[in-house]
């Protein structure tokens, strides 16, 4: 008898299951698939994936601040080391029309102002060409640069996870956290749409958001994941950090989204060898990813160069970046010549 079959038999007969209902509350029930529609293509431009420039400095800040679960608003971050994470998402609908979204708004306002100006995001925000900010989660490097967005359009619609803390909303309304160095002088005046983890929120045909309420680093919880359904190609996940786990996202799509059986690719941070460290579970993900047969994997940020290189060597379709990032005023201390990251200024089309 195979181990899994044995486990199933045991599970069926486990009398303890009834008692365990109290402590394992997420019982599996019948699920129907959601239809998120389809789009013709998605283009992602990496505005900035360098949330910080020196891993060792960032890790020291975390360690000195209290470790992985400490409150990010209480840590005296090294401002010189901060950058930010942000991307421009262009959705081509089936009729050929296009819609632009800003995903995340970075950390250091000086850096984000530069990045937005370089890519013309400031003008797109001011003109209303970009009218929605899709905030993946409330981590400092994705959110604290909010002033750089609001200064061009304080009425922008923001779609964010509903797992915020009071400090997050204070910053949005205009506040300063001196110890941590977070500041916003432009209060948000537009709609704030908070997404819960129960539903799949449709944005435009072919693009939807699903919140995964998982506990993550620095006391933050919950991440909004963008699912795109590219007609004839399959599902693409677009993530800030992908804390819920790439294969868990693919598996969710398989079970819950029409067309989710076909995995096409991914873009974003994958939250693996974040600090260029290694763990055997990263090997699990390389092996597990093969079974989903993705065709295009664009990764950067918290993926870790070490993981991306090993994944590419193992045959996963990692999209190579360019040397454009070298023309930015600051570059990451861990950037390598292998170009396995889509780095600052690169684009990928699904």
């Amino acid at each position: 008898m195979k181990r899994r079959t044995f486990l199933k038999c045991l599970g069926t007969s486990a009398a303890a299951a009834t008692a365990a209902g109290v402590v394992f509350p997420t019982a599996v029930g019948a699920q129907s698939k959601s239809d998120i529609g389809a789009c013709r293509s998605i283009k992602v431009t990496v505005l900035s994936e360098t949330s910080w420039f020196n891993n060792d400095v960032f890790k020291k800040d975390i360690t000195d601040g209290g470790g992985a679960s400490t409150n990010q608003y209480t840590v005296p971050w090294n401002r010189e080391n901060s950058g930010g994470y942000s991307a421009l998402i262009e959705v081509e609908a089936l009729d050929g029309s296009r819609r632009k979204f800003l995903m995340d708004t970075g950390w250091n306002n000086d850096w984000m102002d530069y990045v937005f100006q370089r890519h013309g995001i400031d003008k797109m925000l001011a003109s209303g060409e970009i009218d929605t900010l899709l905030l993946s989660h409330w981590h400092l490097d994705h959110y604290w640069g909010i002033e750089s967005t609001l200064k061009h359009n304080p009425k922008i619609k923001i779609i964010a996870p509903n797992t915020h803390y009071p400090e997050d909303l204070q910053l949005l309304k205009g506040a300063e956290f001196k110890v941590a160095g977070a500041k916003n002088t432009v209060p948000h005046q537009g709609e704030l749409l908070l997404v819960d983890d129960k539903t799949i929120h449709a944005v435009v045909p072919g693009l939807a958001i699903k919140q995964f309420d998982v506990p993550i680093l620095l006391r933050v919880r919950g991440e909004n994941v963008i699912y795109a359904n590219i007609q004839g190609k399959g599902i693409v996940t677009i993530t800030g950090c992908c804390h819920p786990g790439l294969l868990t996202l693919y598996n969710f799509a398989k079970r819950n989204i029409v067309g989710g059986d076909q995995t096409y690719g991914c873009y974003g941070g994958l939250h693996l060898s974040l600090f260029e460290n290694w763990d055997p579970k990263f090997d699990d993900i390389i092996k597990g990813a093969q079974s989903f047969k993705p065709e295009k994997m664009g990764c950067n940020h918290c993926t870790g160069w070490a993981w991306a290189e090993k994944a590419a060597q193992s045959g996963l379709p990692i999209v190579k970046g360019t040397d454009t990032y070298k023309s930015y005023p600051k570059i990451s201390s861990v950037a390598r010549g292998s170009n396995v990251f889509l780095t600052n200024g690169d684009t990928v089309i699904f």
Partner: peptide
Amino acid sequence: FLGMEAVMNLFWEEPFLGGSYVDAPY
């Protein structure tokens, strides 16, 4: 150990290679 994992499977379905959080075998 197998019995406890079987109970977890009832509530979270089976884990899979490379899954994260409750989907992760580890």
